[in-house]
């Protein structure tokens, strides 16, 4: 572990976050913020958290930035409000919040200071590290935690994704998509056609090998959603929507949720409890092979369907409003 490299990265994270807050121009602030996200992914990889690094790089600095840009281009015609309001006294505007935040920061740091230093594995984590292979058949401990030990938690998480997609669709409903936009130039279209199979292959490898290597349903599904967004940017808005309609995206998303619950119910049918893996009749298989770890590949596919279809429908719901304004 290279301490000085880590220190430089932490410094850059703090500086880019500060710049993102201080910049007046929103577009530059978003780009700076996505750079903070990439730096944080690097730090996560250095701190031996490959799963988290992958998720951070794909979702926080890729997908969220594209959503930011869509929302920004939708609202760019309105005047930019001044940073601080004129009527209120300046001490209330800046000084009191700054004082509150620094006191809170000092208190938090004071509390965390006692946590630093030598730390050994807690009992539960040591158990997970030692027994995952025999209890689930998976090689990726974080994936096993998400889809076996804490699978109920993940079901709740996919419900949150469903709620977010419903919320965005309801808020931005009304109005139909106009088939406008011819996309970018011929060179970019052909280049994208060359790259798309490889990106899809990468997404599939992350998704299907989630129980063996870093990755899984969340990351693979997000890369699929990224492909949908790239197609929308490169080929024009109508292209991907005419091939995979929003109706079939809904079907895919619901299919993912149903697959997840069905796998869980199978455990109840065998008398082993909801979402139980190896006690239910799922075979552990040979460790390291594609069809191993019981129900985990199935659950990975379910989560991937849910996340991929859900995030791309959020993007398309935002784009729809954008085109109405341009009419």
């Amino acid at each position: 572990m290279n301490v000085s490299l880590l220190a430089v990265l932490y410094l850059f994270i703090a500086v880019t976050a500060l710049v993102a807050v201080l910049l007046e121009d929103l577009l530059s602030a978003f780009i700076t913020l996505s750079f903070t996200g990439v730096l944080m992914a690097t730090v996560f990889a250095l701190l031996r958290a490959p799963d988290v690094a992958l998720t951070q790089a794909i979702i926080n600095s890729g997908l969220v930035t594209s959503l930011l840009l869509v929302a920004y281009s939708q609202t760019r015609k309105t005047p930019h409000p001044p940073e601080v309001c004129d009527e209120c006294p300046s001490w209330l505007q800046v000084k009191v919040p700054a004082f509150v935040c620094s006191v809170l920061g000092l208190l938090l740091f004071r509390g965390l200071y006692s946590l630093a230093g030598e730390r050994s594995l807690p009992e539960a984590s040591a158990h997970y590290l030692a027994r995952t292979l025999e209890e689930t058949g998976a090689l990726n401990v974080v994936g096993a935690l998400l889809l076996d030990y804490r699978a109920f938690d993940t079901l709740g998480e996919t419900t949150v994704i469903f709620a977010a997609v419903s919320g965005v669709s309801i808020l931005l409903s009304g109005g139909k998509r106009v088939h406008s936009g011819h996309g970018l130039s011929y060179i970019v279209k052909r280049g994208m056609a060359l790259l798309t199979p490889f990106i899809l292959l990468y997404a599939a490898s992350i998704l299907f090998l989630g129980h063996l290597t870093p990755g899984g349903g969340f990351q693979g599904g997000s890369v699929f959603a990224t492909v949908a967004i790239l197609m929308c940017v490169v080929y024009g808005t109508g292209f991907e929507a005419s091939r995979i309609s929003s109706k079939s995206k809904e079907t895919l998303e619901a299919g993912g949720a149903i697959l997840f619950v069905l796998v869980g119910l199978l455990g109840i049918a065998w008398g082993a409890g909801f979402l139980s893996n190896l006690p239910a009749p799922f075979s552990a298989g040979t460790p390291g092979s594609l069809l191993s770890a019981g129900s985990m590949p199935l659950l990975n596919i379910a989560v991937g369907l849910k996340v991929g279809a859900g995030l791309s429908s959020i993007f398309y719901a935002m784009i729809k409003i954008l085109e109405l304004e341009d009419e």
Partner: peptide, 16 residues
């Protein structure tokens, strides 16, 4: 190889 394909493409799109 991915860099060599995608980077010129992106610069071309930005310039256009």
């Amino acid at each position: 190889a991915f860099f060599l394909v995608s980077n010129p493409m992106a610069s071309h799109a930005i310039a256009r």
